[in-house]
């Protein structure tokens, strides 16, 4: 009997302290990891979307509040036209599929996007990432038009074998549309706003 109690106690204490220590380390490293992901996963997507931008989207990044969480905005401009890119999520099979959506702020049209996959262990990402034709379907469309895959009666061709992920991308883009609709003003990069001085 004493043995069993000892076993249970040792196992409980061990797993408890293990989970505790890991949670602690996670909190400590979280900010660093976030920055690394920003740099290695999001930056390439942002750079691709913002090709030819007059300002550096990474350097100018800022955060706004959206539905109780922080959203990182990467601002840019091409030929004086302000744009913004930010990441939204849709539910995939396992956790969220992240999509970096780049918008023109004057017309509300999508100028480019890239799948970033956020919570997944990298290396074996989702198939959407390797399929540029899928992503190109969204280009030039108004972000608020509401996207659906063909199976659900929409106009987006899903990637074969990855319908759920394709659906998740549509949800993420719709989310971006909502952000645009609600917080249009806040998406403007502060620098541009300050420069022309009209936002006193």
């Amino acid at each position: 009997m004493k043995n069993i109690i000892q076993m249970v106690v040792v196992l409980t204490v061990l797993s408890g302290s293990s989970a505790g220590i890991l949670a602690g380390i996670r909190v400590v490293t979280m900010e660093k990891i976030e920055y690394q992901q920003l740099k290695f996963q999001k930056e390439p997507a942002v750079r691709k979307i913002m090709e030819g931008s007059g300002m550096d989207p990474m350097a100018g990044r800022f955060k706004i509040d959206y539905q109780g969480r922080k959203l990182t905005i990467f601002p840019g401009e091409i030929d004086g036209e302000p744009m913004a890119a930010f990441e939204t999520f849709g539910k995939g099979y396992s956790g969220d599929v992240g999509v970096m959506v780049g918008l023109s702020l004057s017309s509300g049209r999508i100028i480019g996007m890239g799948v970033t996959t956020h919570s997944e262990t990298p290396g074996i990402g989702s198939k959407v990432k390797d399929s540029p034709t899928f992503v190109d379907q969204f280009k030039g469309e108004p972000v608020e038009s509401g996207f659906k895959v063909r199976n659900d009666g929409g106009g987006v061709d899903a990637i074969s074998g990855a319908t759920i992920t394709s659906r998740a991308v549509c949800v993420a883009v719709d989310e971006a549309g909502k952000v645009y609709g609600e917080l249009k003003e806040q998406l403007l990069p502060t620098k541009i706003a300050a420069k022309d001085g009209s936002h006193e």
């Binding site: 196992l11 293990s18 890991l22 996670r26 490293t29 990891i33 690394q36 992901q37 740099k39």
Partner: peptide, 28 residues
């Protein structure tokens, strides 16, 4: 196994925080 798994997860965090490209290469 619990002890080892704890240290493995620690390494995962540390690598993600400091050598992210290598972490991507070594994957699972």
């Amino acid at each position: 196994i619990i002890i080892i798994a704890t240290f493995v997860t620690m390494v995962e965090f540390i690598m993600q925080a400091y050598v992210y490209p290598l972490y991507l290469k070594l994957g699972i």
